[in-house]
Amino acid sequence: MSTEELKNLKSNTIVDARGTACPGPLLAAKKAIGEIESGEIMEIYSSDEGTKNDIPKWCNKMTHEFLGILEEDSYSRIFLKKA
């Protein structure tokens, strides 16, 4: 998705994993994904650089659709759609 599309996207849930280190954001994502329905959008806040590479891989394995990343000043917003 383009930056503009991501900016206008409404997330069904936001997981704030800022400040935690690997595997914190991944575990937080795994926990939160169980609480939303298939087709819903989840957004992960992470200040951990590695998470930006890890979440797309996790999505691929779990067959969730990775939508993209928005960069903020001190963290990233990672978007995905639950399979």
Partner: peptide, 11 residues
């Protein structure tokens, strides 16, 4: 433990 919990997150 990091590898183990990570793998569990991968189901």
């Amino acid at each position: 433990m990091i590898i183990a919990t990570g793998a569990a997150a991968f189901d």
